[in-house]
Amino acid sequence: MNFLVRIAVVAAALLAAGTSVAQSTASYPTRPVRLVVPFAPGGTNDAIARIIAEKLALRLGQPVVVDNRGGANMVVGSEIVVRANPDGHTILIVGAGYAVNPSLRRKLPYDSLRDFAPIGLVASGPYVMVVHPSVPAKTVGEFIAWVRSRPGQVNYASTGTGSPPHLAAELFKVAAALDMQHIPYKGGGAVLPDLLGGRVSLFFGSVSTLKPQVQAGKLRGIAVTTKKRSPAMPELPTFIESGVKGYEVTGWYGLLAPGKTPPAILDRLNRELQQVLNDADARKRLARRGLEAAPGTAADFSALIRSEIPKWAKVMQAAGVKPE
């Protein structure tokens, strides 16, 4: 017991020393870095976070601990990071939905631009447009013609109102002037039974969920939503190739820090992130999920967020979704 007490005292002393040293940015990081994942374990965001955490820890010389704080569409986890000490020891990984939240909710407990400092983009990938095999269309053009012949009768699934799959489909509706019925589900796993059972016709989802189904012939892949074809499913054309002008949706994941984090620490984190994203093993593991590592500067990432927020606000307005 005595021994344990002594260890505890030493640990406490070290911890106290650590926090005071943390004032100087040169020695960053002085203790384990907490990477907040604003989702429950098991999803894509979580998987990416764990790949990054493992590689980043080797470069920072301190453990990077993944901390799952799911709930309220990333708001819970984001709020925790906003309130954390802006010393680089607490960072956040967000997905494309981060840029949707400002137009989905009237009252966010933070300002999506001012209260966060971007570290850098981590990875990006397409959403895949799939239909149930009973749908006669094999291309985007045929699908548009098919939906126009039966306005309001075709339905599409999403992983929830305001989720990227919902917005990808809404943007498609706007771009091609289509009338379709939205069926929201709770997450990607819940969509599949009804999609495979033919109760919903159309879905925009991730490569990792849909590629096996398309390969097995249970679903038909129509197109990918990115500007360029996806290396994971190169046989699928893009929407732009298919004649839908300006249609582009990219699923992305990036790292953020609290808004007042010192620039020197943000630079260091971005530098190490670039190294991680050039690591062959990390790239391979991301590719397995149909994602591409997306190295770039913090400014690039900031510009992406700034362009995404108004883009989705417009789509949400067109879709008639009102902020809650």
């Binding site: 998987a47 096996p212 390969q215 097995a216 249970k218 397995r288």
Partner: peptide, 15 residues
């Protein structure tokens, strides 16, 4: 499912 995917096993009829 996540574990299967990481190890390159894509569940489904193909598996």
């Amino acid at each position: 499912l996540g574990g299967l995917l990481i190890h390159g096993l894509h569940p489904g009829p193909m598996l």
